[in-house]
Amino acid sequence: MALAVGCRARPGKSRDNKTGSWRVFKPVFDREKCTQCGLCMTLCPEGCVHETEEGFVAPDYTYCKGCGICAEECPGTAIAMKQEEK
């Protein structure tokens, strides 16, 4: 790829950096307990928690760094942090 004049770039390329590999603990979402309040989606610093096609809430593990804010802030107990298996 030719160097962009002036060190510029268009959006999209940050997705090449798959930050999911940083994860030590993994948030596991319990569909039964989730009320779909959406707080985890709002508070995720990665913006990687989203609504799935089936209407559930799930993180994108490609980018989830496993910080655990979602689990900590979930008003219920729908998100559990589990040791990542590698």
Partner: peptide
């Protein structure tokens, strides 16, 4: 977008 290099749990991000 996703893929930024902030620490996990970054308030600024």
């Amino acid at each position: 977008d996703c893929g930024h290099r902030a620490c996990g749990g970054c308030g600024a991000a």
